[in-house]
Structures are given as C-alpha cells and as structure tokens.
C-alpha cells in the first residue's frame, strides 16, 4: 500500500442562496474543530501542511473546504449565465451553512486573506458559536491598487495573470517549491473567480466601521500577518488590532501573504503558540 497522507477528502451538497452547491472538503485529526478558509482565487489545498501536521491534528480536527466555484467544489447550476461576485452576505452564509451542515460544536475558525477578513465578521456576529477566530493576513480594511478587470478578459490568460499578480505577495525567503505550489493553485482557478472574490476583499467586505464592536472576551481574535504582505500589510494589521480591543497580533518576519502554503515550516513557529493558547483556554 502507498504511504497515504492522513487527509481524507469527501463531497457533500449544501444549499446557499437557495442554490445547491456540491462542496469538496478535506479533514484530518481529532479534537477541537478547526475550520480553515482559503484565500481569494485559490482553494483548500493551501492547508495541506496543517492537515498533515501531527502536532496540530492530535488536538484539532482540521477541516478545510473549497468554497463554491473554487478547487473541486462546483459552481451552482446555471453558473454560465451569472457573473461570480462574492458578497459579504453570500460568504457568511456559505461558511455558516457549511459549519452547521457539519454539526460542528464551538469550532475555531481560521481564514487567510479574504478568509481572514471574514473571520472578523464572524467574531462579531457569531461570537457565541466560534471558540475563537484566527485572521491570517486579515485586516478589516484594504485599499485596492490595481484594476480588477485585468483578471478576466479574453486577451489575458486568467491563470497566468492571477499567479503573476499574487507572486508579489510571497516573501523572497520562502522556498521555491512552496512558492510555485501556491501560485499553481492560482493558475488553476476558474475564469473570473479571483476577480469575483476580490469584490469582497477590496470593496464589499470593509469592516473597519464595525470591528471595534468585537468583544474578544466572548470570541478571542488572533491576527497574524506576514512582513512581506503588500496588501494586508503589517501596518494595516496593527491598525486593525488597535480597533479591536484585546486582539492579539503577530507580525511574521520573513513571511508573505500565504503563510500556511508558502512557508509551512516557518508558519509552525507562529501558529503553534496560538493553537496552544486556544486549547488551553
């Protein structure tokens, strides 16, 4: 028999916005549920290293799913006639529907980039449900710096351009193997999906007006951002933390925007203490 990884992948269908969405999910481990949200334009493969990390999976049931339209999750029927655009409401509904379908009790939720932003929304609105939230590269507000229309047009290769845009977000110290694996996920995204996700990340999902209302005593908030992240910069992360009383902040030196996939070994140094603290709380 091959030396199987401990990850188990399965499919099931949830209904989001009245539409059936066939979801692909991977999980490994036992213990406290840890739901992981991938970045815009990518999929849950970003979490494969966590899913295979016994130090984590001996205490946490790590669950990572592909959002509808991403990875091996399908777009809803009739997608061809609809432009994909992720709104805050749709994103929240998708994640909560997933968690309830899974019958999770008091899970931790960790998201990166747009996923990180969403965890802040959930820390406010679902504080009783989530044990704590971990926002990787997840500031409550960002400023767009390029025109999203470049990401989806017939005279530019969508996969190539998405990868080329986000390659700037990876730290120069990160190992080449994992840099290019991270970018490969972007090269494989569906047409217009990264662009549709960035609608949430850059426009609809701004949260700086509400983030001060998060009560971290009910739902602890951890913010971890990479030194080389040029969208969710260390400065924006610190600004976010200043608006959320009690939020705990870590700036990850030598890291970019994709800590769990671009430099999984270095990420351990930063995420282990957070997970230990959550487990001990």
């Amino acid at each position: 028999m091959p030396n199987f990884e401990p990850i188990v992948g399965r499919y099931f269908t949830i209904y989001v916005d009245g539409q059936p969405c066939r979801i692909y999910v991977e999980e490994a481990g036992d213990g406290i549920p840890l739901v992981c949200l991938h970045t815009a334009g990518s999929d849950a493969r970003q979490y494969r290293h966590l899913l295979c990390d016994e130090t984590i999976t001996k205490n946490f049931r790590v669950i990572a799913f592909d959002m509808p339209w991403h990875g091996k999750s399908n777009p809803p029927p009739g997608f061809r006639d609809n432009e994909y655009q992720l709104t805050t409401e749709l994103y929240k509904e998708t994640v909560m529907t997933f968690c309830h379908a899974y019958d999770l009790v008091n899970p931790v939720i960790m998201g990166c980039s747009m996923g990180g932003r969403l965890t802040l929304h959930l820390a406010l609105e679902q504080a009783e449900y989530f044990r704590s939230v971990i926002a990787l590269e997840g500031a409550d507000k960002l400023e767009p710096y390029y025109d999203l229309s470049w990401l989806h047009r017939p005279d530019v290769h969508g996969g190539e351009v998405c990868a080329a845009f986000v390659s700037a977000q990876i730290a120069p110290q990160s190992p080449d193997e994992y840099r290019w694996e991270t970018l490969w996920h972007y090269m494989q995204g569906g047409p217009g999906i990264f662009k549709g996700d960035l609608y949430f990340y850059w426009h609809d999902g701004d949260f700086d007006d509400r983030s001060p209302r998060i009560n971290t005593k009910n739902c602890p908030v951890y913010l971890l951002s990479g030194e080389y992240d040029s969208s969710c910069t260390p400065e924006r992360t610190i600004d976010t933390a200043e608006r959320i009383t009690g939020a705990k902040t870590t700036i990850m030196e030598g890291m970019g925007h994709f800590p769990m996939s671009e430099n999984p070994e270095l990420f351990k140094k930063f995420i282990y203490p957070v997970l230990e603290e959550i487990r001990g709380a």
Binding site: E143, Y145, Y146, A164, F165, S167, A168, Q169, A171, P172, E227, Y228, S230, S231
Partner: peptide
Amino acid sequence: PKRDFHDIWSMLP
C-alpha cells in the same frame, strides 16, 4: 530585498 521592494507588483501600492 526589503519588503515592498521585492517585486514590481509590491512596489505599486
């Protein structure tokens, strides 16, 4: 390179 200088697309913002 220092952060922000490491890629022309990180120099943009």
